[in-house]
């Protein structure tokens, strides 16, 4: 039993390697920050395209739905491996873009940004969609009947209401995203998991891995609590009763 503690909770090891693991963790945070902004935007675009009405836009809607389904179905790990393994071979793309080294971050970082944005954009699109569909259809009808165009009705009536239903599930997705930044370790990004595994290989001790896990906990645990609070608050709003819902 004491061997177990030595393997996983050796505080000397943790102390010795604390700044290394922390530096790696900052990479996770940076990756998270970049992807979260891009994915929120990309997801919104996807969600809006998906809602475009009429026969004219049917092919666009279909493509968007297919994209969302496929990207949510393929394991993120596979997508990251495909991107980092495949893109460098696309010779028609100029080298600076194909193997990016922007803002001091190497190509594994940007490949991870691409992969995670593609996937989380899809997940977030679904959160937006749920929010939009939670707005009663009568709202849209009323807005249109008053003469508002599709765009104006969305902008002034539907989306502002959808937005209130979104924070809780969106926060859930963001917690997932933070955890999934660790997948970047397979494309050799020096983030917390990779660093802690290196330390494991050198010291034959897994305590650094626990340390990395603890760093994530510090953020994800309070965030998960916050989600619960948000959900409860939203439910209270709904049951307090806005208008009469008679069939």
């Amino acid at each position: 039993m004491s061997e177990f503690f030595h393997q996983y909770f050796d505080f000397t090891v943790m102390g010795d390697h604390f700044s290394e693991v922390l530096e790696g963790f900052f990479k996770n945070l940076l990756l998270f920050a970049v992807v979260v902004l891009l994915a929120l935007l990309w997801g919104l675009i996807l969600a809006l395209i998906r809602q475009l009405p009429g026969k004219k836009f049917a092919p666009l809607r279909f493509l968007t739905i297919a994209y969302i389904d496929v990207l949510r179905a393929i394991p993120i790990l596979i997508i990251l491996l495909l991107i980092s393994g495949g893109i460098p071979y696309l010779e028609f793309i100029p080298k600076d873009i194909r193997i990016p080294h922007w803002f001091g971050q190497p190509d594994p970082f940007w490949y991870s940004v691409l992969g995670l944005t593609m996937v989380y954009g899809a997940y977030m699109a679904e959160v937006y969609r749920a929010g939009i569909e939670a707005v009663p259809g009568g709202q849209f009808e009323a807005a249109r009947s008053l003469g508002m165009s599709y765009g104006k009705a969305m902008r002034h009536v539907v989306v502002p209401q959808a937005v209130t239903k979104i924070p809780a599930p969106m926060l859930n997705e963001m917690i997932s995203l933070l955890k999934d930044t660790t997948l970047a370790s397979v494309v050799a990004l020096g983030e917390a998991v990779l660093v802690s595994r290196e330390i494991l290989a050198e010291s034959f001790n897994s305590s650094a891995v626990i340390l990395a896990g603890a760093m994530f906990l510090v953020i994800t645990l309070p965030a998960a609590r916050l989600v619960d609070v948000l959900i409860k608050r939203n439910q209270a709003k709904v049951t307090r009763g806005a208008h009469i819902e008679v069939g």
Binding site: P136, G138, Q139, E141, A142, A143, L146, G147, M148, K152, H156, V157, P160, Q161, T164, A242, H243, I244, E245, V246
Partner: peptide
């Protein structure tokens, strides 16, 4: 409408002014 469909995120006054401003 039967379900009123008032915009819950707007006051009574704003409900009546919104379309006037944005459409007319």
């Amino acid at each position: 409408f039967q379900q009123f469909n008032l915009f819950p995120h707007k006051t009574a006054l704003q409900n009546v002014t919104l379309a006037q401003e944005k459409v007319l």
